[in-house]
Amino acid sequence: MQALHSSLRWIRRSGVATQLISLALITTIFFIGTAGKSLTMSNIQVILSLTAIPAILAIGVHMTIVIGGIDLSLQGVVALCAVFTGTLMANKYTTYDVGLWIIPITIAVGGLAGLLTGLTHTKLRIPSFITTLGMSFVLYGVAVYINKSQIVSLQDDRIQNFIHAAPFGIANVVLIAVFVTTFVQFLQDRTPFGRHLYAIGGDEALAKQLGVNVDRVKTLAFTLAGCLYGIGALLLVTRMGSATSRAGLNLLFPTITAVVVGGVALTGGVGGAKNAFLGALILAVLNNGMVLMAVNPYAQTAVNGVVLIVAVALTIDRKKLGFIK
């Protein structure tokens, strides 16, 4: 009884109660709807591997939403990182072959893009919405310029083989996403930087007055988000085995949906990396279930829209109960 009580308390406090309930609910619906097909081992593997990359990108975007901002530069950063990968890894168009150095390089390119966004936002005092929207176009333009609209097949498939390999029964790409989630959640829980993210999200002016170095923390948040987009881009490109400037298109809307579905309030100050991961997982389960149940594709688009609205309604409701900004 005591154990039950304390675990209930843990769930309430963790800020993922709504998400776990929703997840259990839709899993049950699909389990019944597909006569058990949705919970076969192979389908669970599929769901998890399709959660991984959206989760990493969602964690990136959520860093900037937690501080009360938004990052719309995702598509531009991913395009640029994808193009760097396509240019610098062994391929038939260029003579470069950086091998596995591509990993730190893409992360650094993403990080630099994020740093630039963060500095523009904080130093020039331009709202993050506008800064990142503009940055998205700038970076996408640069990516198209470098890429010259080619689809570059990668000849080095070491990373591709690694992310698909499953030495522990689960594809490595899933383990990467779990590691990223744990790492960012740890940063948020156990470092001053992490706590200051929430202080800024709670009340930026007050946080500044209390001594939080608001500009530095925000810039760092955007930089970290950029690094995560870099990782996401590298995984997207190597998964497919080909790189193009179009790799980032159509990512923004599902990513922000995942963040919101995970319970990260768009007003800032609430929700962590685990929320973003859960959001991506819920969307993956939902899409997978609709495919398995052969829901009419025309209706699927509508369902996704409804999910976003319901998710926003739920986070707003939670705010009413918890804290009002």
Partner: peptide, 14 residues
């Protein structure tokens, strides 16, 4: 391309 990859993966599971 990405979306097609995801959709195909799920269709193949079914």
């Amino acid at each position: 391309t990405n979306r097609a990859y995801e959709v195909t993966k799920q269709l193949l599971a079914a």
